[in-house]
Design a protein around this nucleic acid. Sequence first.
DNA 1: AAGCGCATCAACCGCCACCGG
DNA 2: ACCGGTGGCGGTTGATGCGCT
Length: 287
Amino acid sequence: MVKKPVIDENGLKKGAWSPEEDNKLRSYIQRYGHWNWREIPKFAGLARCGKSCRLRWINYLRPNVKHGDFCKDEEDLIIKLHKQLGNRWSKIAASLPGRTDNEIKNYWHTQLKKRVCDQHIWTTDKKRKRNFTRKSLTQKLQIIHNNNQNNNYDSNLDLDFTQTNPQILESCPLSPQLSGNNSQNLSSNSETYVDTSCNTTTDHDCNDLASTAVKTLCLSSLDSMGSVLLDESFWTEPFALETSEQYYCNLDLSVLDEGMSFSPVTSYWENMDFLYSFSSDVDAIIQ
DNA sequence: AAGCGCATCAACCGCCACCGG
DNA sequence: ACCGGTGGCGGTTGATGCGCT
């Protein structure tokens, strides 16, 4: 995953470093230190520019540079510091011994940012992560959505909505299909409104409720969730947490116990885990 | 099995701040 | 005050790996 070595117009080598070059640079700096990066390649016998040498030393050859997976504590710290400092990678790196700004920056862009941007679920399992992408989930939802459009959903499901007690207050319309088929106790109109600030439960309860809600919806009609997730704005909204929670609120209405609601109390990460389990449910239905 | 597309990450590039003359 | 050299920083690139179809 490195750029292939090339010689530029000045006769300087660019691209991937060879073990031989690494050894030359390492042994020179260990012996003489890095007194002037521009001069070092000449004295070390390297056809590289000073900047390239500096970068190679700092990011790879320097002693105590940590490589490999970030632990949970490091991830949490990066997220916390990024929240405080923004893209000031060198400042963030200063708080993580052995980690370079470049590595943290890469890790942020490839792993952590996705958690914050609603695109991917966090997991250390690469396969699992790859399976959960916006594209794949959208495709799955499209299949189910199309099935529902063809009246393939089971309208005979025995769903008991009489136990729910949603507080219907403000703008969070359910899809006409869901409202029309399943919301006899929610609203007689095709638009139903949900209060996102009403009573809440514990995070754990919310996850259980969310899971149940999704299963219920998957079995009856995915129109609501499907149309929400298929809506481009769901994915592209930079800080879509509130929006997402409103949508989850929608989903929960059908399975909430009396006086309970699934709304902003659930943490973002748990929402993402919820989305993953939702994706698994969708897989099961497709199969 | 092969091709495709996405994810990853080492390395590069351009800009800017700092410093000494 | 100005200028050139240097180091540091953050954004971007591109080759490779890997999963999916």
